[in-house]
Write a protein that binds this DNA or RNA. Structure first.
Lengths: 194, 194, 194, 194
DNA sequence: AATGAATGAGATTTCATTCAT
DNA sequence: AATGAATGAAATCTCATTCAT
C-alpha cells in the first residue's frame, strides 16, 4: 500500500498555513516549497498551478464545512437543536483548525462566485433548516434568506472577533450564548431561555 | 503657484474602485494610473507607495464610519433609538458608496491591527452604547464585547449578502428588520415589535 | 549691486555636500532642492541639467586646485621649496574643505577625460616643476610622468587615508613628513633631512 | 539533478567588466543580463540583489589581493625583498586583469567600511611588514600607518596613471623603479641602488 | 519523481526634466 | 522668478512556470 500522498499533504498544509498568514498573493510558490521541504518544480507534480492549489484547498474546506453543518442539522429534531448543533460543530471546527478558517475567510470573496450550484453549500443548508422551521411553525414567517445571512454573520464575526482578541478562549465555550442569540433573532419561542 | 493637484482626488477614487473590484494585489499601479488618466509616476507625488495609498484610503473610511456611528448614537435617547439610528446611518452609507464599503471590507483584516488606540473606532462606539444601556438597565447584564461583535456581524454580513445578491434592494429598506434582530439579540424589551 | 547669486551659491554648496556624501547617482535633484530650500524646478534656472551642475562644480574645483598648485610652485625657488609649498597648499585646501575634496575624488574618474588640453591641470603643473628641476640638475634624470604620478599618489592617498581614519589630525601637520618622502622619491639631495 | 549553473560565472564576469567600464550606477541589470546572454531574472538566482553582486565581487578581489600580498611578503627575507615581491605581485595582477583592478578601485570607497576586522586586509599586511622592519632596524622608526598609506598611494596611482595613459606598457616593467621609490620613502639603506 | 536554473512577463518605484500656473 | 504637479523612461526586483538534467 505504501503512503503515496505523503508529500502532497505536506505541501497542502504548508500552503494553507502560509496563505492564512500572508494571504494568497503574499505567499509565493517558493515560500511554499521551502516550508514543505521540496523544490519549486515539485509542486507542479501535484497541482497544475498555484491557482489550482488554492481552489483545491478552498473546496476541500468548503465541502467539509457544508457537510459538517448538514450532519449537525440532521442530528437535531427541532430548530433549536439543529441550530445549537450546527454552531457547536462550526466552533469546534474553528478551534481545531483556526488557520483553515482564516484561509477560508480570505478566499471566500474571490471564490464564492465559482461555487457550483450542485455543491453542498453552507448558506443553502442554513436556509433549508429555516424554511422547514417556518413550515413547521417553529418560528414565525420571515425572509429566510436574510435570516440566514444574519446567522452566518453572527457566527463568522464571533470567529473573526476571536482572531483579533476581542473574543477570548476556545469558541465552543460561547456556543450556547451565540446559539441563544441566533434563536432570538429567529424569534424562536421554545424551551428557551427567559 | 505650481499647478493645483487636480488629479489627486481622481487617482484616489480610481484606486478605490479598482481595489474594491479586483482586490489590492489584483490592482496594479498601472491600472490605477490608466483609469485616472495619469502616468504611473503621478501617483507617487501624492502617496509615498501603494501601501501608503491603501492605508490612507482605509483610514479615511474608517474614521468616517466611526464618526457616522458616533453621531447617529448621539441622536437617540434610548438604546433602541441609538441602535436604529446607527444601523440606518450605516446602511445609508453603504447604499451611497457600496464600492467604498467593499474596499473597507477587503482591507480590514490587514489593517485593523494598525488602528491606533486614540482613533475613533466603530467597535468601541458600539461597546460604549451597550455599556451605557446595561448601566441604565435597558438591557440585561451581558458580555458587551461579544454582543458588539454579534451586532457588527449582523450588519456586515447583511451588506456582504447584498453584494452577492442574497439580499435585495437598497439596504436602508432592511434597517428596521435588522435593527429589530439586533435588539432581540440584546434582549431589549422596550416599546418593541409586537 | 544687490546679491543676485545668493540662491545659486546655496544650491551649489548643497549639491556638493550631498554628492560628497552619497555620490552623484545617490543624490537626486529633489534632495538637492530640499537641502537648498528651493523647489526642483528652481534648479533649472541656474543649471541646464544635473550633469551640467556636476561638471560646473568639478571644473570650479579642478581649476582652483591647479591654480593653487601653480601659485605655490611660483612661491619657491628650488624644487624642494616648490614641492613643500605645493603640498602645504594642497593639504590646507583639504583641511578647509574636505567635502570638496571628496567630491573631486568621486568624479575625477568620470570627468578627467573631459578636461580640455588648454586648462590648468594639476598633473601638468607637477610635471612642469619636475622637468625644470631635472634640467637644472636638482634631481637626477627620470621618467617625470611616472614621478608625477607617484607624487600625486602619495598626496591623494594621504588624504584618502585621512577620510578613513587611518591618518589623524589636520593634514597640514603631515606636510613636512610627506614632502620629505616626495623629495626622497625624486632623489633630491639638497639641504635635505639628515 | 537540476541543471548546472553554467551561467553564474558568465554573469559575474560580465558584471565586473561593465562595472569597470561604466561604473556601478552606470551599469543596469539589463546591461549585465544582455552581455551575459541571460534574462534579468537569472541574476537573482545567484545573487540576492545588485548590491549583493557588487559586494560579492568586491570581496572576492579584496581577499585575492590581500592573499597575494601576504604570499609575496612571505617569499622575501628582508624588507626590500618583501616590498619588491609585493609590488611585482600586485602589478602582475593588474596586468592580468586590469578590469578587475578598475572595479576594485571604483567600489573601494563604498565598501571599505564594510570590511570585517577578521578579513585579510591589504593595508594590514603592508603595515605588518613595516612594523617588523622597524623592529629589525632595517628602516628607521616612523609612523608606519602613514608610510603604509604612502606606499599604497604610490602603487595605486601608478595603476590609475596607466589607465589614463600617463604610464605606458605593462606595469610589471615599472616594478623596480616603483619599488626603489617606495624603499626611498621608507629610508631603507640596503644593498640599494647606488 | 525530483531538482533548481532559467525564462518572460509584469510589478513597484525612482527620477531628471517639463510646463501650466 | 518660482512652484510643484505631472511626464516618460528606465531601474530593480519578483514570481509562476518550464524544462534540461
Amino acid at each position: 500500500m505504501g503512503r503515496p500522498p505523503r508529500k502532497k499533504a505536506i505541501i497542502e498544509r504548508s500552503a494553507l498555513e502560509l496563505f492564512a498568514e500572508h494571504g494568497i498573493d503574499g505567499t509565493s510558490i517558493r515560500m511554499i516549497a521551502e516550508k514543505a521541504g521540496v523544490t519549486e518544480g515539485a509542486l507542479y507534480r501535484h497541482h497544475a498551478s498555484k491557482d489550482d492549489l488554492v481552489r483545491s484547498l478552498f473546496f476541500q474546506y468548503f465541502e467539509r464545512i457544508a457537510e459538517l453543518l448538514a450532519q449537525a442539522q440532521e442530528s437535531g429534531e427541532s430548530v433549536d437543536q439543529k441550530i445549537r448543533a450546527m454552531i457547536r460543530g462550526f466552533f469546534t471546527f474553528y478551534d481545531d483548525d483556526p488557520k483553515g478558517f482564516r484561509f477560508v475567510l480570505l478566499v471566500q470573496h474571490v471564490l464564492l462566485e465559482n461555487v457550483r450550484g450542485d455543491m453542498e453549500n453552507p448558506v443553502e443548508v442554513i436556509m433549508g433548516v429555516l424554511k422547514k422551521a417556518v413550515k413547521k411553525g417553529e418560528i414565525p414567517k420571515q425572509d429566510v434568506a436574510l435570516s440566514a445571512q444574519i446567522l452566518l454573520g453572527i457566527v463568522m464575526q464571533t470567529a473573526i472577533g476571536h482572531r483579533y482578541k476581542r473574543v477570548q478562549g476556545p469558541l465552543v465555550q460561547h456556543s450556547t450564548v451565540i446559539a441563544d442569540a441566533c434563536l432570538r433573532v429567529l424569534q424562536f419561542r421554545g424551551s428557551g431561555e427567559s
